[in-house]
Design a protein around this nucleic acid. Structure first.
Length: 854
RNA sequence: GCGGGCGUGAUGGAAUGGUAGACAUACCAGACUUAAAAUCUGUUGGGCCGUGUGCCCGUGUGGGUUCGAGUCCCACCGCCCGCACCA
């Protein structure tokens, strides 16, 4: 008997699939199915998260293909981004070489997985053929008014003289220089995603096959709010400032206002800092902070009393102090707020810190105590008792009061109700080399001019060095100099490149026609769009998906996508991460040094470093990441066990949407199981082909087979891969116990292989061929369960007494309720519990359960 | 801080509001073997004594809704994801 040799089997069938062009996506008369996994960043090594992500997509792809769909399942590379530049700075070399060599490495690591990918459609976003089309679209967007320039704040590292990403700012310091980061204003390019705020929000309702949590996160992110915009008049404002404009979503708390807060970047604050050194110092301190919302929210709330006084709009003798506060962003609303400490925790903390009034405007219906150190913020739908209402009753909900307050203010000439969105325009400028150049020229005479489309792509120059900080495009001797596309005079190229989110916002559309001379081709887009099933990490729930939804709309406006593709992902599945323990030692400065799992040895005293024997600290499992080195290399797993084992393992045990922890024993178990299936098949080939097994046994096995077909099919359809696999384990056990030699059993083994084929395609092909299957299994139609075989004649009903299981009866499947009740009341356990009395209640759920209430 | 999610045996997990722990791992025991590996079979949430188709407890903690809650609601604790220049 031969052993299960994955390596031979896998390369054999991969060659067979290649030779038959099994996975080439073709437009034909079949219904199409487009399955897409979020494409990877080419870090150079695939990791288990990739294996899990692509295996899930592969299961869907192979399954849909066998259900008769023409499947598109492409792969590409999200190839621009900072790591390539960082590598160039740290190790020398060129980002381009680094990236393409990583892509080659990763492709080599992925191919042995046997994924049903149409590799002929592969591209990288750093291919000029791709980013040139992106530049063409950028110009189209400009023409449609979807792009503009404005000032925006960035993190500036004053030592490295460079812009830092938020993740490069650690505790307010630059990650490389360690210098305190400053905020700086730069003129930047923006996409007008805000034009689509309402539309992007409303369309979420139509995304039936998206997870609710993602839809909720997107809704909250877009953040539609209705509020009141009005102004406080300044008692004695500095030159030119007689009022402060504010926006509030809680105008109902206006009678609880106790201070006005303005951003350090508010025009009023900027004016004051010119005259007052203390204010200048305070604002400067604020500007030394990071720019991320998270950072600002977590930072200690600080304010500076400007000494200015605002008058309350309802009572001009009511005076409110004006503070500059570090937590107010100029980008939001008007850059100014009024504080109502009684009903906002942040305002309350601020008020307590600076000794400001706390004025309740409402109290709980059943608790009239005033606010002390915990703001009273009930849900807006809860009725409360108003102590300082204007224009509504004593008892009202927050929502009712807000509406009434807006109406009252409008009719009294105090501001007006406005709808605002939290969603800000998408700043796409990056002061970096390794990205898609923004195809624009700055001309002294013509201003900002789009490059002519026939000059695209605007290619990145290759002759750049990364020995100095900053953007090499800025100091490139010749690339920057060009001629104006409009007047022909000498002009300068834009040196900003695009956010890498731009690259990933339309790659799904490009896959439908990856070699087209325009961004998309109408026929291909019409046939292949939309993505029927998109699969990726929950970490992309907001930005990537929102940007893609915007891009699809903008592309439609420019004629690059049909109307129906403006919502490009019909169904979305967010898979969990692959996690692993982290191994860490400390260097002489007590900084953490991480180690790969393969370098760890286990001793009785605990984990030690294989090379030196140094003790290793084991930290709880976390997402596998290069920086923490808690990665298991799929290549090692594939060479040890084979791709099918790796695929089987990442799908088993954990539900796909949840994290899965990689364990060596789990991989071992998967391999054992596949070996067992292989052995069952080889044994079946050599067994005497006895005609039939015992009548009853065959019938039972057949029933089990059809049930398994049904359950596995449902499992795949609903992303219950782990449940489907558990079912396949159970079916394998059933087959193993069945009497060998029967034709039914042989059928069962072949069906087992067929049902396993989306997960373990190589092993399945091997068994299929072994047991006389015709042609490639990858092309065989999916097995169908016979509905008649799924129905049992009898069902076992558990009997609960007062909600606790006490007995059970087996009855005919379609037995009537009355008859069931009769039998239940005759059950010994029920009789015992009831004594002489009748049950208080008898609940019969047909085919499910019976509950007797005494 | 804000928004979203998750929490079940020793472990990964299963369970349309209906028998909690399927399936797998690990451990232990047995079969086969000179032995080991491999393979096969079986036990395993906790407690109780009355050893039964027994009883009680048990799905992060505390409440609630229901004939019935792992599942729905409220509060709390812990962990994870996102927070607009990481991809």
């Amino acid at each position: 008997m031969s052993r299960y040799t994955a390596k031979e089997i896998e390369s054999k069938w991969q060659s067979a699939w290649d030779a038959a062009e099994t996975f080439k996506a073709v437009r034909d008369s079949r219904p199409k199915y487009y399955v897409l996994e979020m494409f990877p960043y080419p870090s150079g090594r695939i990791h288990m998260g990739h294996v899990r992500n692509y295996t899930m997509g592969d299961v869907i792809s192979r399954y849909k293909s066998s259900c008769g769909f023409s499947v598109l399942h492409p792969m590409g590379w999200d190839a621009f981004g900072m790591p390539a530049e960082n590598a160039a700075m740290e190790q020398g070399g060129h980002p381009k070489d680094w990236t393409y060599s990583n892509i080659a490495d990763m492709r080599d690591q992925m191919k042995p997985l046997g994924l049903s990918i149409d590799w002929s459609r592969e591209f990288a976003t750093c291919d000029p053929e791709y980013y040139g089309q992106q530049q063409a679209m950028f110009i189209d967007f400009m023409e449609k008014g979807l792009v503009y320039r404005k000032n925006a704040t960035v993190n500036w590292d004053p030592v490295d003289m460079t812009v830092l990403a938020n993740e490069q700012v650690i505790d307010g310091m630059g990650w490389r220089s360690g210098a305190p980061v400053e905020r700086r204003d730069l003129t930047q390019w923006f996409f007008k995603i805000s034009d689509f705020s309402e539309e992007l929000l409303d369309a979420i309702d139509g995304l039936d096959s998206w997870p609710d949590k993602v839809k909720l996160m997107q809704r909250n992110w877009i953040g539609k709010s209705r509020g009141l915009q009005f102004s406080f008049s300044l008692a004695e404002g500095p030159h030119g400032h007689d009022r402060v404009e504010v926006y509030t979503t809680r105008p109902d708390t206006l009678m609880g206002a106790s201070f006005i807060g303005i951003s350090p970047d508010h025009p009023l604050a900027r004016m004051l800092e010119r005259e007052n050194q203390d204010i200048a110092d305070f604002n400067a301190e604020c500007r030394r902070m990071g720019t991320s919302e998270e950072y600002l929210e977590k930072a200690e709330k600080k304010g500076f009393d400007t000494g200015l006084i605002c008058r309350h709009p309802f009572d001009t003798s009511w005076e409110l102090p004006v503070y500059i506060a570090n937590f107010i962003l100029m980008d939001y609303g008007t850059g100014a707020i009024f504080g109502c400490p009684a009903h906002d925790q942040r305002d309350l903390d601020f008020a307590r810190k600076y000794g400001l009034d706390v004025i309740d405007t409402f109290v709980a219906l059943d608790d009239g105590r005033p606010v002390e150190y915990e703001a009273f913020v009930p849900p807006k739908t809860e009725k409360v008792r108003w102590t300082r209402a204007f224009g509504w009753g004593v008892e009202a909900t927050g929502s009712e009061a807000i509406d009434a307050a807006i109406a009252f203010c409008e009719s009294n000439g105090v501001g007006q109700g406005v709808t605002k969105f939290r969603l800000r325009d998408w700043g796409l400028s990056r002061q970096r080399y390794w990205g898609c150049p923004i195809p624009v020229v700055h001309c002294d005479d013509c201003g900002v001019v789009a490059e002519n489309k026939e000059n695209l792509p605007v290619r990145l120059p290759d002759d750049v060095a990364f020995d100095k900080p900053g953007n090499p495009l800025d100091r490139h001797p010749t690339w920057r100099d060009t001629t104006c596309p409009s007047c022909g005079k000498p002009a300068k190229r834009e040196t900003d490149t695009m956010d890498t989110f731009v690259d990933s916002s339309w790659y799904f559309a490009r896959f439908t026609s990856p070699r087209a001379e325009s961004p998309t081709s109408a026929e291909d887009a019409a046939y292949w769009m939309n993505v029927d099933q998109y699969i990726g990490g929950i970490e992309h729930a907001i930005l990537h998906l929102l940007y893609s939804r915007f891009f699809a709309r903008a592309m439609h406006v420019c004629g690059h996508l049909p109307k129906f593709a403006t919502e490009p992902f019909d169904a979305l599945f967010t898979q969990g991460m692959v996690t692993h323990e982290i191994y860490v030692t400390r260097d002489d400065k007590d900084r953490p040094v991480y180690h790969l799992p393969e370098h760890i040895e286990w001793h009785e005293s605990g984990a030690r470093l294989g090379a030196t024997g140094a003790p290793v600290q084991v930290i709880a499992s976390a997402k596998m990441s290069k920086s923490k080195k808690n990665v298991v290399d799929p290549v090692n797993i594939i060479s040890a066990y084979g791709a099918d084992t790796a695929r089987w393992f990442v799908l088993s045990d954990s539900p796909p949407e949840r994290d899965v922890e990689w364990t060596a024993s789990g991989a071992d178990a998967a391999f054992k199981h596949l070996s067992r299936v292989y052995r069952l098949a080889t044994e079946a080939v050599t067994e005497d082909a006895a005609e039939e097994g015992p009548q009853g046994a065959d019938e039972a096995l057949l029933r089990e087979m059809h049930k398994t077909i049904h359950d596995v099919t449902m499992g795949i359809e609903s992303f219950g891969f782990n449940a489907a696999i558990a079912r396949l384990y159970a079916f394998t056990n059933t087959i193993a116990r069945a009497k060998p030699g029967s034709a039914t059993r042989r059928d069962a083994i072949r069906t087992l292989a067929h049902l396993m084929s989306p997960m373990t395609p190589h092993l399945a092909e091997e068994i299929w061929a072994m047991l006389g299957g015709q042609g490639l299994l990858a092309r065989a139609p999916w097995p169908r369960a016979d509905p008649a075989m799924l129905v049992e004649d009898t069902v076992t009903l558990p009997i609960q007494i007062n909600g606790k299981r006490r007995s059970e009866i087996t009855v005919a499947r379609d037995l009537g309720k009355d008859e069931i009740e009769k039998r239940v009341l005759a059950d010994p356990a029920v009789l015992k519990a009831l004594g002489d009395g009748a049950p208080k209640k008898l609940i019969v759920v047909p085919r499910r359960i019976v509950n007797v209430v005494t």
